[in-house]
Computed example of a mutant assay.
Amino acid sequence: MSHTLRTFLLLAALTALFLIVGDLIGGRSGAMVALIMALFMNLFAYWFSDKLALAMSGARPVAEHEDPELHALVADLARRAGLPKPRVYMIPTETPNAFATGRNPQNAAVAVTAGIRRLLTREELEGVLAHELAHIKNRDILISSMAAVIAGAISYLAYMGQWALFWGGFGDDDDRGNPLALLGILLAVILAPIAATLIQLAISRSREYLADATGARICRCPLALAQALEKLEAWNRQLPMKVNPAQAQMFIVNPLSGDTLMRLFSTHPPIEDRIARLLEMARRF
């Protein structure tokens, strides 16, 4: 199954979950209120995604004369990808990592850490930058924002359901005395946000696989990207970055220590699976 189709099916599952939970907990009007609340909350984050992400990471703009090689690599890869050249930023940390952000290709930015410039070869850095440009090309900020809106609406519905259960505000008198109906609502209130989060994380992992494949085609060297991922994963385990956990999914490898995270609750696919897929691409190339 292609990752584009997988993303579509996961978004469809998330939407179906919202409709079912909305009908069960809030009815049509309650579901609409929750959706509007989530939409407004996430619209701001989507529209100002580049400014928020860069500010949270402490990134600063890099002038072309400060790092001409980095600018040349970004410009060449953007040309190959059919994208306008994004703005280039540097994060002052020794942990090697990178991310891309921006609501569309015209408002995109790529940020790399100081450590990644010292660790990777030119070809490996090219692979990392191609991966980040792939996120821009594939409109992953938009897709993750759509998932966040629906998941957020489900969380709002569950919060409304908690209060309704507390005050006994569900249904008519017959429904309130029905233990099965109350049990169903209670399970929805508890399990729906967890299910929404799992689907949202699955979408994030699917987009990482797609960015690897797209990036490998942009740089025309899957092996270099695979080698870069191996190095970055090892360094980030030894020297995790201090970032907001909500921002972790943006980076090419998880910047937080991954030993305590279950794969099901991870924003990134297992690094060994990503490398294996890239090596298979290299063999086909």
Rank of each mutant, 00 (worst) to 15 (best):
M1F: 15
H3E: 13
L5T: 14
F8N: 03
L9T: 12
L10T: 04
L11K: 05
A12G: 12
A12L: 13
A13T: 14
A13L: 11
T15D: 00
F18P: 00
L19I: 13
I20R: 11
D23C: 06
I25S: 06
G26S: 13
S29C: 02
A38W: 07
F40A: 07
M41E: 15
W47V: 10
D50S: 15
K51M: 12
P61M: 08
P61I: 12
A63M: 03
A63R: 14
H65L: 06
P68V: 03
L70I: 10
L73I: 08
A78R: 00
A78V: 11
R79V: 05
R80V: 11
G82L: 06
L83D: 05
R87N: 11
E94C: 12
A100Q: 00
P105H: 14
Q106D: 15
A114K: 07
G115E: 05
G115C: 06
L120T: 04
E123C: 08
L129G: 06
A130K: 00
A130D: 01
A130V: 01
L133C: 03
H135P: 00
H135W: 08
K137A: 15
I141R: 05
I143P: 07
M146A: 15
A147K: 03
A147Q: 05
V149Q: 00
I150S: 01
I150V: 15
G152Q: 10
Y156S: 11
L157S: 01
L157A: 04
M160E: 05
Q162V: 14
W163D: 05
A164I: 00
W167N: 04
G168T: 07
G169M: 12
G169V: 10
F170C: 03
D172Y: 04
D174I: 10
D175W: 09
D175I: 06
R176S: 03
G177D: 15
N178M: 07
N178H: 09
P179Y: 13
A181V: 11
G184M: 14
G184H: 02
I185G: 02
L186Q: 15
L187T: 13
L187P: 03
A188S: 15
I190M: 08
L191M: 10
L191Q: 02
A192C: 05
P193D: 10
P193M: 04
I194K: 04
A195N: 08
A196M: 07
T197C: 08
I199M: 08
L201M: 09
R207I: 14
Y209R: 06
A211C: 07
T214M: 04
C219R: 02
C219T: 06
C221E: 15
L223R: 10
L223P: 01
A226G: 13
A226Y: 11
A228E: 05
A228H: 11
L229P: 03
E230K: 05
K231Y: 04
L232D: 06
A234W: 13
W235C: 02
W235N: 02
N236K: 12
R237H: 10
Q238G: 13
L239S: 14
P240N: 12
N244Y: 12
P245M: 02
A246K: 03
A246R: 04
Q247I: 09
A248R: 03
Q249P: 04
F251S: 12
L256M: 06
S257F: 15
G258Y: 11
L261H: 05
L264F: 13
S266P: 05
P270R: 12
P270A: 15
D273K: 01
D273L: 09
R274W: 02
E280T: 06
E280L: 12
A282Y: 05
A282K: 09
R284F: 14
F285S: 02
